[in-house]
Design a protein around this nucleic acid. Structure first.
Length: 214
DNA sequence: CGAGTTTGACCAGCGC
DNA sequence: GCGCTGGTCAAACTCG
């Protein structure tokens, strides 16, 4: 089993190495991926190539995840909570404000979309590749599909999902690699504000590493 | 009937 | 400015 995870869309200036343990009977990865089969093979990549060498994490055997991280990357690891929380709070305030304006001032739908488009850029992202027959991996959360798009240079459509939980803005994109259709690329955007909606065993196991969930 | 999916349309961002 | 592309919306549809 090979896993690699990569984060980011921000410049990274320094690197640090960190480790955390991964219990043998646990199938959930610290960032929320839950492998649905023992043969699952995961490789993650940065959305942008320039970040590729800056942060990587990989499994040694199946129990230990090592990662390189950047202290400059505000929303990963140590900095993730502060960055995300402040973003989330800001978004909530903005949204409330938007609704307020929308109701009282009759703000155009156009403007609303522009605002949303701008916010999109601030969302933290995490993406990884998974060798799997199924497109949508069981990561413990419940997703609702809201769009599908055929992207350039691929014969496989990209699917867009949103977390079904109220007040949770996490989105994910799922697509298959053009070169190797066996590989599924999953990109998470945002951070979950709730626990995975799985049964007791899973939630118990995952709670040990709840700080890492998105 | 409610929740989730499909799909065409629309829009913003980006490169030329 | 224009065309291309990716992301989102929302109505119609499907399923349990």
């Amino acid at each position: 089993m090979l896993n690699q995870g990569l984060f980011g869309d921000q410049e990274i200036s320094s690197q640090q190495m960190g480790f955390f343990s991964f219990s043998p009977n646990m199938t959930s990865l610290p960032f929320g991926l839950m492998s649905s089969s023992s043969s699952l093979k995961t490789i993650a990549e940065f959305p942008s190539p320039k970040l590729k060498e800056d942060i990587t994490c990989h499994f040694e055997g199946s129990q230990l995840l090592s990662l390189q991280r950047s202290s400059a990357n505000l929303w990963t690891w140590g900095g993730v909570n502060e960055g995300i929380v402040s973003n989330t709070m800001m978004r909530n305030e903005d949204e409330d404000d938007d609704h307020h304006h929308n109701k009282n001032l009759g703000i155009s739908a156009m403007k609303m979309k522009k605002i949303k488009a701008r916010r999109k850029l601030r969302e933290p992202r995490f993406c990884f590749k998974t060798m799997s027959d199924v497109d949508v991996l069981d990561d413990g959360y419940k997703w609702r599909k809201y769009g599908q798009k055929v992207v350039k240079n691929t014969q496989h459509p990209r699917s867009y999902y949103r977390c079904t939980q109220d007040n949770c803005r996490v989105k994910k994109r799922v697509e298959r690699l053009a070169d190797d259709p066996r590989m599924v690329i999953t990109t998470y955007e945002g951070r979950h504000v709730h626990s995975p909606s799985h049964d007791e065993d899973d939630s118990q196991a995952s709670s040990q590493l709840s700080n890492f969930f998105w």
